[in-house]
Design a protein around this nucleic acid. Structure first.
Lengths: 222, 222
DNA sequence: ACAAAAGTGTTCACGGTACACCCATGA
DNA sequence: TCATGGGTGTACCGTGAACACTTTTGT
């Protein structure tokens, strides 16, 4: 094995960060406008290159800390892309992508005078730089999967919520016709991870809804 | 962003290659004995460092081509580990792991005068170098998952096989009591991906078994 | 009183589990 | 004829889909 044959890499991380506007039923993904060439003016997923002595995941958290302020952020590795052509001299570029779903209300976009960091509606994604559309697609698929066999939804709901709130969240992410409402209700309640707070909340006309609280019993696979 | 702060990486690939001894019901994983320090004498997953101009996956295929001869090898990315301490000067090491299940009969171990490349029974894994036990565990879990919601099993069975052959394969990988035999039979047949060849085969005493052929209808998710 | 929203119940089909039983062959 | 392995059938249960229905509020 001759060392001179080995490729030199710079390693980058790219984050697919989702959030949900529970009021207006929008699914958002965080994008950053690119200021340099190549792809100047295009949008990208928030990412950065890994620094010396910096753990891979740590790097992903760092770039997010620069862009947004958010509580309880848990990144999950998505996929590693290594075939990207690079403009770096004597270096190849490899991208490790991460995924997260964050609570929009607990999130604040930092240093954004020029509107370079923006939540984009998943339905109106502008042309993305590099292969970021591919990474986004991959992350979106992961989000949809996790919604079905994990309790990730409760990470982005407020402390207390109605069953209809959860339903709306699922519709926002999975699309209109993923399940009947009443069946969705009973399936949820049978999971045993919801506590009745006893409090009722009225939303205009109609019978007041019960507020529930997530009791943390995950029963997750992943 | 100052370039001097960026970490320099060498990137490696590590493969978790499984195969099944259908005669004796053993699940094997391919290991290579390490000849250099560190971890000299320990076993490792077959891996290598990525060369200049070599795609990530291509690198994974290359090291396998050096160790074994096998038809129809499809690698699937597992996970990327980046926290490994490195002895390389001025370089960090990052490992992208891949996963595959191959047909033992179509596989031949190459250049093995010193028995450095060996199929190891999953139940008798020696101490592994680096974090390779972790990678192996990860791959084993993926194998078990894929067996349940994909038709990966037919990749390693011969052209024709009995239903009991499939059952034994599942037992070998998933363990004794994953399902009742007769229920397993009917579930399999209901999938509609098995063709009755009409041929019967006798195995000692008892009623001869029907030979089936996989008709390729995957209905896969992944 | 009526519409709107929340919540309950009922029926049906399907898929998994457990298990009993029948069939074809070798010794 | 009996053990052995292959193969079929049935009864039961839980779950999800579809949908009708009841309850509680605002106007």
């Amino acid at each position: 094995m001759k060392n001179k044959e080995l490729a030199n890499f710079k390693v980058g991380v790219d984050n697919v960060i989702f959030s949900v506007d529970l009021q207006n039923n929008h699914l958002f993904v965080l994008l950053v406008k690119r200021l340099e060439d190549p792809y100047q003016g295009y949008w990208t997923l928030p990412g950065t290159l890994v620094r010396e002595g910096e753990a891979l995941e740590k790097s992903a958290y760092r770039i997010l800390d620069e862009k947004i302020s958010v509580n309880n952020l848990y990144l999950e590795q998505l996929y590693t892309f290594g075939e990207i052509e690079s403009n770096l001299v004597n270096n190849r570029y490899l991208s490790v992508s991460y995924f997260a779903l964050v609570r929009l209300k607990d999130t604040e976009i930092l240093m954004n005078n020029h509107h370079n960091t923006v939540w984009h509606n998943i339905k109106e994604i502008p042309p993305l730089a590099f292969n970021h559309q591919q990474i986004l697609d991959y992350g979106y698929q992961r989000l949809k999967n996790k919604l079905e066999y994990s309790t990730i939804a409760f990470d982005v709901l407020p402390e207390t919520f109605t069953l209809n709130d959860i339903y709306q969240l699922y519709i926002t992410i999975l699309g209109e016709n993923f399940a009947d409402y009443s069946n969705f209700r009973s399936r949820l309640l049978k999971l045993g991870c919801l506590e009745d707070t006893g409090i009722k909340i009225s939303k205009g006309a109609g019978r007041p809804a019960t507020l529930y609280r997530f009791n943390g019993k995950t029963s997750d696979n992943m």
